[in-house]
Amino acid sequence: MNLNFKNESFRDDYTFKNSPESIRRFPFPFNEDKYMYSVNMEPHVPAGPAGHAYNNAIDVDEHFVAEMRDRALVLKEDPLRYLALPHMMAAQWDTLELLMENQAASYPEHFTLEKNGDQWHWINRPMGIDQIFTFGDASTLPMEPLEYITRQAQGDFVIVDQRDGQLWCDAGMVTTQADWSLDFDIGMNFHEWHGPVPLAHEIGVFDRALKFLLNLQQGKPVRRLNWTMTINPRLDTSPENYHKWGPDRATVTPENVGNKVHLRCELQTLWRLPRSNAILFVVRCYLIKMEELVTVPKWARRFHRVLRDLPPELVDYKGLTRYRPTTVEWLAKFDDGQPSTPGIYPE
């Protein structure tokens, strides 16, 4: 598949938008007309109509080059977005291998990986990178292996170590996050770093998810979708910069909803790593404008109902309070009251 990489921005003039094909491949996170937390994990196997974000294990899309440029800008301002505790080096190499192999296998026109023993040759054409290095020898790369490869792969990446029957958030590259801080949470266990999430602890979601993940097997990755909303197509909605993007939430009017309000979907995939026995947690962010979303009638109908009927605790936790009424009112025009078909894919 030959991708046409776009020149666009996720800050300042916000020129990001989705092509019609990119809209149809969006991983829409609602399979019914209501939403509550659940342990909604399924095997991460190729799925969906041709071109869908589920087609390849590691998805690369038309926003690749622009997203990598935005990541570099974030890291320049705040190097603490990339952190790895010292015992995570084996897991860093595991991650580099997984991302290079998958990107090269699924997108051979854009990426090539040649291996000759531990001498590896990596080519990333869209970014103009050609690197020969020794697998396992960090001194042969310009930076630590996890930072190196996650500057060339879309999504946030967290590596969790497994010990004492717990998972520990011990390394990560986090520049496109929905309001959580790697610098604050690194070193925490699974329950600790999800501490601020309302309701879910009480209904046992994290206990069940932990039990499930501790038994995750190599070669059998799993996925789930999570979501929130973002004003303007801003990837870096970090708590670090909340005082900069927070004011945007007060700028939504009935006239600008369609262009300003975005559904933000996270495709979360979890992979058991072979050498370290750690788990790679990929949090890939997809943005879609309301005016793009309503081009799919099923999604317009369903998202209107989900947003209208969302439990108040979730409205508050996801930070939707200020602009939800305006958005629901705008979406109502696109809800014809018809039943919506099951599943997440477009009709």
Binding site: S181, F184, P239, Y242, H243, G246, P247, R249, A250, R322
Partner: peptide
């Protein structure tokens, strides 16, 4: 953790 309380306004 301390987070700006009046960021939005």
């Amino acid at each position: 953790q301390g987070v700006c309380i009046d960021a939005e306004e």
